[in-house]
Amino acid sequence: MADVLEVRDLTIEFLIEERYYRAVQGVSFDIGEGETLGLVGESGCGKSVTSLAVMRLLPTHTKVSGQVKFRGQDLLKVGEPQMRQIRGNEISMIFQEPMTSLNPVHRIGTQISESLILHRNVSAAKARAQSIDLLKLVGIPRAEQIVDEYPHQLSGGMRQRVMIAMAMACQPSVLIADEPTTALDVTIQAQILDLMRHLTAENHMSTLLITHDLGVVAEMCDRVAVMYAGQIVEQGPVREIFRHPSHPYTVGLMNCIPKIAGERKRLVPIEGNVPSLQNMGVGCRFAPRCPKAMDVCHEEPEEYSVGTEHTCRCWLHAEAGVTSR
């Protein structure tokens, strides 16, 4: 399986009060053709920032290092005009808030047509026809009418469908979805996830799905990367991660969500809070909250192999040896 997107040692630093702080450190992952990688973590773990770095949409005053290779080309090195050719065309993105991600003063059709006219050089009339097809593709009823309506006339679920239609317009090879269903009700979430699953499968799209919901991950992803405080702490195939979670943080996450079936037990929370950017400390970043912390955790662990394509950044698995990558 050829990797469409390869991210290597991505490090992102933000300028806060005249000092740089690392929001993301040494993040590496690959996404193969037609594969869905879930990037999981709590707010502030750097998952959204990572996706913005891939799109080169981070604010100025941000230091980014490492490599983001899209089909072999390092996106961190290409010029802005070239990057504009890639955004929306080769890699497109869906955001969490369907309410604020659409421009309220433009018609739905105009907004979908925009990227078609921009990247595909089609005529306005043709773009409109294609927009209607796209709306039908994402399951919007009355597409011929909706195309001339404004975002406020649509419900949240419908807007997210429009967002997906926009992202799909140029048939990108990579789709980045940042919490695409977090703002939606469960029954609508089920519709949208179903839609995304079909579209990505039919178009062999590679997807980076950012979410905090382990349920969504289990349903949608082929592989999972768990992030904590700016680092990927565990990465592997979805079954591996759910069957044999290795990092104490992953284990903690799985234990602290209430179950929908089975016996009701007292939850086992992860004590403490996520460390802030400014006081990240040294060594393993999870150590202060970790029930299994040891002396050695004052030193930074590396990624160790714990199974087939399954790595874990934790001293508990150090004897397994550093992964070769």
């Binding site: 933000f14 707010s43 502030g44 920032v49 604020t100 996520v274 802030s276 950017l277």
Partner: peptide, 11 residues
């Protein structure tokens, strides 16, 4: 500023 405020979220 805490880390969480850096994540893009609705203002």
């Amino acid at each position: 500023m805490s880390l969480s405020e850096l994540d893009i979220k609705p203002s």
